[in-house]
């Protein structure tokens, strides 16, 4: 019974985390059409010290970045990384 409770608790917390992804930056990109593309940007942005978490929405063509506390990532670096991965930057949105 205790195990079942723990599994349920873990599942709920996972769901809660998935729902509660709050991005600091939304990067709108052209050409993001497949899993290899998503993997590419995930690996590149994942190497940055300032990035806490990444989520890629292929349907919307948006990369969501959650930054670590008190960390910043300027537009120039974002532009450079998107270009280096072979995609075209549309816009960068910063969430307050």
């Amino acid at each position: 019974m205790k195990n079942i409770f723990l599994i349920l608790l873990f599942s709920c917390s996972s769901l809660l985390f998935a729902e509660s992804f709050e991005a600091d930056i939304n990067i709108h990109v052209k050409g993001l059409v497949c899993d290899f593309c998503a993997r590419s940007v995930e690996k590149t942005f994942g190497k940055l010290d300032s990035v806490e978490a990444i989520k890629v929405d292929l349907e919307a063509g948006v990369i969501y970045l959650d930054l670590k506390e008190n960390q910043e990532l300027n537009d120039e670096i974002i532009k450079k990384l998107i270009k280096a991965n072979g995609y075209s930057l549309e816009s960068i949105e910063r969430n307050p």
């Binding site: 052209k30 050409g31 059409v33 593309c37 072979g86 995609y87």
Partner: peptide, 12 residues
């Protein structure tokens, strides 16, 4: 070698 790439919102 990639000679050319065209990115669109929904295609590549």
């Amino acid at each position: 070698h990639l000679l050319f790439r065209k990115n669109e919102k929904k295609s590549q």
